[in-house]
């Protein structure tokens, strides 16, 4: 990749410019914890994903992460692994997920983040990927296995296209790396709550508060905490501490259990309403 697309009309450093930044500003004014909903795109079909995303947005999801299925998802637990396999069996590709975003944008203004392993992005090519993703109205991208060290060009190209680049921070991340991660992130910073893969847990980790305050010292970006969150009380415990909670496997499990795409959309919406009941802290 030698040239950088000149599509930037926004000033990428100012987070209020994207739908993600605007939504976090609204949440801050309302004193509300945001809910970031992860859904594997194409599970069980892209048509079903469309209905599920619209229902989730309607039920109050503040940001939706569309997971791009990958054959070897090393960061994911069994629930999202199975969802990826179902989506791949249905023939889901990254190109088709980008088309789905275009379709969704005709019906909703909910902030949309593509959540992918780096490999499929690389296959499309960074420049083409960034242009198409921005053109169809996605707001940000998170590449699970891409850290700041390997992301110099990725970040330049995506930011020039007006996309937020969301990076992960983990409990194992030392302070000097936290600063480096914060410096390349925009939109929000995704804080992994515990060492391990994605999947539901009964309780929040005990050291989460200390981790959050450590990350706070490195960044003014909104923090979204994920991995293991599934219950309204998990969200309630985060109100006033971070800006958002990410829920993934709990929603994907609802989709796995549902007997049809319509039933999945209903179940996800109900789960989101229940989770959101915890987001005001009362």
């Amino acid at each position: 990749m030698s040239e950088t697309p000149q599509a930037a009309t926004s000033t990428p450093e100012s987070q209020a410019q994207t739908r993600i930044g605007r939504r976090f500003a609204e949440l801050r004014r309302a004193g509300e914890l945001g809910l970031v909903a992860y859904i594997t795109a194409g599970d069980p079909s892209l048509a079903a994903t469309r209905e599920i995303v619209l229902a989730a947005a309607d039920a109050g999801a503040d940001v939706i992460e569309l997971g791009v299925p990958f054959s070897d998802p090393v960061a994911d637990g069994p629930v999202i692994q199975r969802a990826s396999e179902r989506a791949l069996r249905a023939g889901t590709t990254l190109a088709a997920v980008i088309d789905l975003v275009a379709d969704l944008r005709r019906s909703t203004e909910v902030p949309l983040v593509l959540f992918s392993y780096f490999y499929p992005i690389l296959q499309i090519g960074l420049g083409d990927f960034a242009l198409r993703t921005a053109q169809v109205g996605a707001d940000g991208v998170l590449a699970t296995d891409l850290t700041p060290e390997e992301a110099t060009e990725y970040r330049q190209v995506l930011r020039a296209a007006g996309l937020d680049t969301i990076f992960l921070a983990a409990p194992t991340t030392p302070d000097e790396r936290l600063a480096r991660i914060a410096a390349v992130s925009s939109g929000f910073l995704y804080l992994i709550s515990r060492t391990g893969v994605t999947g539901q847990r009964d309780q929040l980790p005990e050291d989460l508060t200390a981790l959050v305050s450590r990350v706070r010292r490195s960044t003014a970006l909104p923090l979204a905490v994920g991995f293991g969150l599934s219950q309204p009380e998990h969200l309630r415990a985060l109100v006033g501490k971070v800006e958002a909670a990410v829920v993934g496997s709990a929603l994907v499990s609802e989709i796995e259990r549902a007997e049809s795409g319509a039933a999945a959309a209903q179940a996800v919406a109900a789960r989101i309403r229940s989770l959101k009941s915890g987001s005001h802290g009362r």
Binding site: V74, A75, T147, E150, A170, T172, R177
Partner: peptide, 11 residues
Amino acid sequence: GRYVPETLMAP
């Protein structure tokens, strides 16, 4: 190179 989830960078 090194393409891994952030949790593995420190180890």
